[in-house]
Simulated scan of single mutants.
Amino acid sequence: MGERVLACTACHGEQGRATPGGYFPRIAGKPTGYLYNQLLNFRDGRRSYPQMSWLLEHLTDDYLQDIARHFAGLQLPYAPAPAAPVPQALLERGQQLVRRGDAQRDIPACTSCHGETLAGVQPWLPGLLGLSRDYIASQLGAWQTGQRRAHEPDCMASIARRLSAQDVGAIAAWLAVQPPPARIEPAEHLPEQLPLRCGGLQAGSGLGTAVRARVGGPP
């Protein structure tokens, strides 16, 4: 598979480590189900990026599962988080939203889905560490505008549309400067149910259904 996925590493960096600029995200070590769902979404038009869609349009579900398993199995060191001249007030707002959310606006904490350590949860929910500020902000914006979608009920789109532009900037700024540990491993399960029903958890049912109960997904 290492030779077969060289086209992926041209953008996502050697072994999927991400590129120095950070716009193409790290895919090495992401949960298998998450990677598989995103490959499906690019192939089937729920995520919009022509180069990805073109690469995947003729690949079967089984082959996409093989790709997902390959990159999920690559546990590689993370690069240090870049320093950024960000106002302290912005970082504090970002930390509040990530760690505690905003109950008055029905915005759950990022940790309630992506895990207390923000390393993701097996096999569906991605980690949020090691991503660039621009990438995080652009993906939240894509959820807000419908350029990025998941199966209904689309929980991320629902949450993203409750965020203001200032919220998006604060979340992206805080996450981007968090130092990743030497090894990031997704949690095996969340301690509680997800705050919203997420249809995307069903999309990868070919990878197994028992795990949905562990992350509070739809039956």
Results as ranks from 00 to 15, higher is better:
1 M>N: 14
1 M>C: 15
2 G>D: 15
3 E>T: 10
3 E>Q: 04
6 L>Y: 13
11 C>L: 01
11 C>K: 02
12 H>N: 06
13 G>E: 00
18 A>D: 02
18 A>W: 01
19 T>G: 02
20 P>T: 12
20 P>H: 04
24 F>E: 08
25 P>A: 13
34 Y>W: 08
34 Y>T: 03
35 L>N: 01
41 N>E: 12
41 N>F: 10
41 N>G: 09
43 R>N: 08
45 G>C: 07
47 R>M: 08
50 P>Y: 07
54 W>M: 15
54 W>S: 15
54 W>Q: 15
55 L>F: 08
57 E>Q: 14
59 L>E: 15
63 Y>E: 15
64 L>S: 04
66 D>P: 10
67 I>N: 04
71 F>N: 02
72 A>N: 05
73 G>L: 01
73 G>K: 00
76 L>H: 01
77 P>C: 05
79 A>P: 10
79 A>C: 12
83 A>K: 13
84 A>P: 10
84 A>T: 10
85 P>C: 09
88 Q>F: 02
88 Q>L: 03
88 Q>N: 04
91 L>M: 14
91 L>Q: 10
94 G>L: 04
99 R>K: 05
100 R>I: 07
101 G>Y: 03
102 D>I: 05
103 A>R: 13
107 I>M: 10
107 I>W: 07
111 T>L: 08
111 T>I: 12
111 T>R: 09
117 T>F: 00
118 L>I: 03
120 G>L: 03
121 V>S: 02
123 P>S: 07
124 W>N: 08
126 P>H: 03
127 G>L: 00
128 L>I: 02
134 D>Y: 10
135 Y>Q: 07
136 I>P: 01
136 I>T: 08
138 S>T: 14
139 Q>G: 14
141 G>H: 11
143 W>S: 01
143 W>P: 00
145 T>P: 04
147 Q>E: 14
148 R>K: 07
149 R>E: 11
151 H>V: 07
151 H>F: 09
152 E>H: 12
153 P>V: 05
153 P>S: 09
154 D>S: 08
154 D>Q: 10
156 M>F: 04
159 I>P: 05
160 A>L: 03
164 S>E: 11
164 S>H: 11
167 D>P: 12
168 V>Y: 05
168 V>G: 06
170 A>H: 13
174 W>T: 06
175 L>R: 05
178 Q>M: 04
182 A>W: 02
185 E>T: 15
187 A>H: 03
189 H>I: 07
192 E>Q: 13
193 Q>P: 15
193 Q>L: 12
198 C>E: 12
199 G>Y: 00
203 A>Q: 09
203 A>E: 11
205 S>Q: 11
207 L>V: 01
207 L>A: 05
208 G>T: 11
209 T>W: 12
213 A>E: 11
214 R>K: 13
218 P>C: 12
